[in-house]
Design a binder for these strands. Structure first.
Lengths: 224, 224
DNA sequence: TTGTCAAGAATGAACGTTCGTTTTAACCTC
DNA sequence: GAGGTTAAAACGAACGTTCATTCTTGACAA
């Protein structure tokens, strides 16, 4: 009996193997969650899709809830990095340039990792949004990411204002929220109906920010 | 309960009573679905919230699925009517005018019927979006509403173009999709974080469509 | 290099619970 | 007291999870 006092238990299989199994589970779960939602997906569905038995899966995750949280976190992270990759530039990119670039990058990213299903990520993101209503941990992660993003957009809008591209009297946060809203709406439409493409969306945004309405045609702001 | 003479031959309670019970069930279910999602809500939850027993509820609805479909349909309908109430005008309202008016109207509508919880409808709408991924009937209702709405917005954008407010070279459908996206994003942010108000959103939209970027500062459209 | 073997990894049947739904029997109104 | 409506008990199915068991792996002795 060769009893040795190994501090680190020797792994029976490599760390790569363990990582691959974990990924196998998360990928299977993600496919289920995307088309069926978190709570209409059973563990049996996940097991079947992952190609593993119950015992195997429960060796890597303590509960279904933990898998849901992991998939949600990865989803939010993939959206976050697609934004973060777009660095600040001088002169600042216009909204249509910036958003078009972010969406194009995301499209390329998805083409590589997701079997070219351009709707999968938006659909999953929509499920994550719904999950925040009942899962405080997911809500916290989402809120953190959102507020970081909002701060970046506010800074960008302020840069617009200092260059005279945007009315300096406008509230930068309101403008930033509106810009974020366009991206969220893009995701919603892509998730629900598909057929959205970054170039077309950029064209629409471009036409909007290039709009020119004679002031005398405007109606007063308050109506009720 | 208040049982009155029967209007219909077989019924022993009034139609008003039946309608009220149906509404009682739908209201309870809606409250559950809003905060918990369709599939994380059990029938027990619905029964408790509606204050009725299983037998009573199953007299009015054949299944949980039928309740889900009814709540989803009512939700989409309430969004639809809030749009439909905004008639065509000449000159056409600018995007910020129109969207601001629609959101204000919706706010008033919600204040009357929903205990002043301005997040409830957007949250429920988000759940409905998620449900379309696995429920073809809900998906059909949503798609019908969306395409009707899209058509109206395209017509409006074309009116902008004929007045020279929007670049006539832009694809009207892309611009319309972008405008719809802003509203969807408004709903998302209101559902997730609250604190959105129509006036602020209108201000943000106003600043966007009034943006003025010197052409020589723009970057080329294609990047990769 | 090869054989051995303890321990990690994986299995799948079975568990207790909770699900949506149905049946039952008491209840209320006329 | 009869008809229609309700609440509550009961149903089978399906849920997420566990566990006794089997299979696989890799370090080590020879």
């Amino acid at each position: 009996m060769n009893v040795r006092f190994n501090l680190r238990a020797m792994a029976r299989v490599s760390q790569e193997h363990l990582d691959a199994r974990r990924r196998q589970i998360l990928d299977g779960a993600r496919r289920c969650f995307t088309s069926n939602g978190f709570h209409a997906t059973s563990m049996q569905d996940v097991l079947r899709e992952a190609g593993l038995s119950a015992g195997a899966v429960y060796r890597y995750f303590r509960s279904k809830e933990e898998i849901v949280a992991a998939v949600a976190a990865e989803t939010l992270e993939s959206v976050r990095v697609s934004y973060a990759a777009t660095a600040a530039a001088d002169p600042p990119p216009t909204p249509d340039e910036l958003i078009g670039a972010v969406l194009s990058r995301l499209r390329v990213l998805l083409g590589d990792t997701d079997g070219d299903d351009q709707r999968a990520l938006p659909q999953l993101l929509m499920q994550v949004w719904g999950e925040t209503l009942r899962n405080p941990e997911v809500a916290r992660v989402l809120a953190d990411g959102y507020h970081g993003l909002l701060g970046q957009w506010i800074a960008l809008v302020e840069a617009y204002q200092s260059r005279g591209w945007v009315d300096p009297g406008a509230d930068a946060e309101h403008v930033a929220r509106t810009l974020i809203a366009t991206v969220q709406g893009y995701f919603v439409q892509q998730a629900l109906f598909g057929g959205m493409d970054p170039a077309g969306f950029r064209e629409g945004l471009r036409a909007l920010v290039a709009m020119n309405v004679p002031e005398e045609e405007r109606r007063p702001a308050r109506e009720h």
